[in-house]
């Protein structure tokens, strides 16, 4: 009962914070009276227009969202498929990491946006976007997996070692359950970076569809209403994805103790 009340309170305050932000924006917009700061009504009108009529090339808003989502999922899935096993392998066999870190670590520090020209030259179409998203999402997933393996509680390993557990059992039943929450955190961080990468990639990449491209189209026309719609859509989709992740995490990792400093 107490938990439900707290949840409702939380929803209420979140809605209130959105309302406060909207009021501030409205006041600011009314004060400025500038096409660079459209009112909420104008943003809403732009949103409806993008849904019903589409953009300047007649491409509907949902087509833009769908194109970006597909690219995100492809790149993100590739980052998980490669990052998690590689992180596990390098965590379990630290020599593998020590002997290859001279190639891995420098790549980690090159921002995905810096790869765009290379991606344009080397890849075409969809693979170009997927590659850039993969680059952005891969390292948070890979690094958190790698580090979490090295932080597995040795006591937990000793518990099963004493019973005569084989290495494969220790990996399956101790290491993997121990590192899963950290991997999930890495995935959440990776997903956020994936969104940053897709927008940048779509702005520079060749195709005319995608949320990033939509923003760029209207930036050239200085139509802030549509630009803000694009920005808000990215924020809302990212927020929904994050919430879904949190719900799944809470279900899967219900054994975890939440830490509170209250």
């Amino acid at each position: 009962m107490e938990g439900r009340k707290e949840q409702l309170k939380s929803v209420f305050y979140n809605l209130l914070s959105i309302a406060v932000a909207a009021v501030f924006w409205s006041l600011f917009s009314a004060w400025q009276q500038s096409p660079f700061f459209p009112s909420i009504a104008q943003i809403w009108k732009a949103f409806i227009g993008l849904i019903t009529v589409g953009d300047i090339e007649g491409i509907g808003l949902f087509s833009h969202i769908w194109a970006s989502l597909i690219r995100i999922f492809a790149g993100f899935a590739a980052a998980c498929v490669l990052g998690i096993p590689l992180g596990l392998a390098m965590g379990l066999w630290p020599k593998l990491y020590k002997r290859t870190r001279a190639i891995i670590e420098p790549i980690r520090f090159i921002p995905p946006i810096a790869w765009i020209p290379m991606a344009i030259v080397m890849l075409v179409g969809f693979s170009r976007y997927a590659f850039l998203i993969w680059l952005g999402a891969f390292f948070p997933i890979f690094i958190t997996t790698l580090l979490s393996v090295t932080r597995v509680n040795p006591l937990h390993v000793n518990v099963v070692k004493v019973f005569g557990a084989k290495r494969s059992y220790i990996i399956r039943k101790i290491v993997i359950p121990s590192v899963l929450p950290d991997i999930a955190t890495g995935m959440r961080v990776g997903l956020g970076i994936a969104w940053m990468c897709i927008v940048a990639a779509e702005m520079i990449g060749g195709e005319m569809v995608g949320i990033g491209r939509l923003i760029l189209k209207y930036a050239e026309l200085i139509r802030m209403g549509e630009i803000i719609v694009g920005m808000l859509i990215i924020g809302v989709i990212g927020f929904i994805m994050n919430e879904i992740f949190i719900i799944i995490e809470a279900r899967i990792f219900r054994w975890r103790s939440e830490v509170s400093i209250d």
């Binding site: 937990h156 000793n158 359950p177 054994w255 975890r256 103790s257």
Partner: peptide
């Protein structure tokens, strides 16, 4: 073990 060693999951 001296410390609590339950596997939390």
């Amino acid at each position: 073990f001296q410390e609590p060693s339950c596997l939390p999951w």
